[in-house]
Design a binder for these strands. Structure first.
Length: 416
RNA sequence: GGGGGAGUGUCCCGAGUGGCAAAGGGGGGGGACUGUAAAUCCCCUGGCUUCGCCUUCGUAGGUUCGAGUCCUACCUCCCCCA
């Protein structure tokens, strides 16, 4: 595998980040000199990125670690249009306020993975709204639009999919790829950017950027895409029992994040250690070699390292300790999510389960109890009319309410 | 503009003779087995003040003891002709 001259491509290749590359040899030569300026675009479609974008973030991380320059591009402009790639229905258009809001949420994460600044090796964060919002339609058509062939655009996967399935593709979405291509060319001109990376579904869009760059007279541009990360079982990655795996701590706690990695399937551990931690390959090889239940050591390492990268060492240790107490000692560890309730008049278990987020209605909570899923202080609840009162508090002054093996909430009495 | 077809449980796909809270999948949740894994098996998957009541089949009316199912109008989407 180690056929590259540069640490950059060698590392990316051996850790499993490379799916396609437009000109590996040419890129390798640049990387060997530390002359790569790589960017990845992130659209602001939600208040936080989720693990689905983590491979991309890691890519920027490695680029910087391995002597290149990284640019995190916020899609403040492109999000106003909406990327049709990989979707068979239009996204609903977001309001400008939502986009700004989302952008603020997304930006927080990058500081954990990149060093920003103004030095030559410092990473940059740029918003494509900076130039996209200033474009003039006629100028745009004459300067950029003339380089695009509609014939070719129609052949692009993102477009073809919609056309073949006879699903609507609006004109605004059709323009997304033009804007993304323009971004690449603009970054090349402004910042000497020469590499765009992204998920495999972005290949077409990136290639368009390379073509546009050539026609507009920029230096040679390169494309590098990552494989689509799926679980060994074939499912898409990134869901937990309680929804998407968000990167922002206010949307998924470090403990929840740690749990996500801890629950990785056996067959994925090695691959994920390479992709989502910076652990040296030699160490990963040792962990991968563990068999049987010992593989859990590797899973804990994965959870520790991945959580530490995102939320910091301290948060990772806390999460790890909370999990150890909860699962290995069966205690009600203080690090579990808590819920304050006024217990003076008693609170029904059904209501408590709903408030804890275990069920979305009393009926659902009731069914869970009938299925034996709900436990109070580790004792299965059989009576759905059970009341939680001050008498239910355990020796630590809390009530441990659980659903299934993995969902636990500590209920604390509300003070005055 | 003319002709034809379709919209089903707000996660998705999809059956549905006038008696239907509505078949079957997928997805999701839980249980068993395990190792907080996978695979497998079992249960659940409209709401509520739950031996009952309420709300659901594009929208609004109508026929009927009773309508997802029949009739009328409207909306949306698709196909053919122009």
């Amino acid at each position: 595998m180690s056929t590259y001259k540069s640490d950059f491509l060698n590392t990316l290749s051996t850790r499993g980040y490379i799916h396609q590359c437009s000109d590996a040899t040419g890129l390798d030569a640049l990387a060997a000199k530390g002359d790569v300026t790589a960017y990845i675009g992130f659209d602001c479609t939600a208040k936080s990125l989720h693990v689905g974008s983590l491979v991309q973030i890691m890519l920027l991380h490695w680029a910087q670690e391995l002597g290149q320059k990284s640019i995190a591009l916020m899609g403040g402009g492109t999000t106003r249009v909406g990327d049709p790639s990989g979707r068979d229905e239009s996204r609903k258009l977001l309001t400008l306020e939502d986009i700004e809001d989302n952008k603020r949420g997304i930006q927080q994460v990058f500081a954990k993975f990149l060093r920003f600044g103004s030095g030559p090796r410092d990473a940059l964060m740029i918003d494509n709204a900076e130039w996209l919002t200033k474009l003039n339609y006629l100028d745009m058509l004459r300067d950029v639009g003339r380089h695009f062939s509609v014939n070719r655009m129609l052949a692009m996967d993102s477009v073809k999919l919609r056309l073949e399935r006879e699903h609507e593709l609006s004109f605004i979405e059709f323009n997304y790829m033009v804007l993304q291509a323009y971004d690449f060319a603009e970054l090349a001109r402004r910042y000497g950017c020469n590499l765009q990376m992204g998920g495999s579904d972005q290949w077409g869009n990136i290639i368009n950027g390379i073509d546009l760059g050539r026609r507009m007279g920029t230096h040679q541009l390169f494309a590098l895409t990552t494989p689509l990360i799926t679980l060994a079982s074939g499912a898409k990655m990134g869901k937990t029992s309680s929804g998407a795996v968000w990167l922002n701590a206010d949307m998924l706690s470090p403990y929840g994040y740690w749990q996500f990695w801890r629950n990785t399937e056996d067959a994925d551990v090695g691959r994920f250690l390479k992709l989502f931690t910076a652990l040296p390959l030699a160490e990963i090889a040792k962990l991968e070699a563990l068999g049987g239940s010992e593989i859990n050591i590797a899973k804990k390492m994965l959870a520790d390292k991945a959580t530490a990268m995102l939320h910091g060492q301290k948060a990772a240790e806390d999460a790890s300790e909370t999990a150890r107490k909860t699962f290995e000692e069966g205690e009600s560890a203080a690090g579990l999510p808590t819920l304050e309730l006024d217990l003076s008049a008693g609170v029904g278990v059904l209501q408590a389960a709903v408030l804890a987020g275990f069920a979305s209605s009393n009926g659902e909570a009731r069914r869970s109890i009938q299925g034996g899923a709900i436990r109070v202080n580790d004792v299965a609840v059989s009576d759905e009319k059970m009341q939680l009162t001050a008498a239910s508090l355990n020796s630590e002054g809390v009530i441990k309410l659980s659903m299934g093996k993995k969902k636990h909430v500590l209920i604390k009495p509300k003070q005055g």
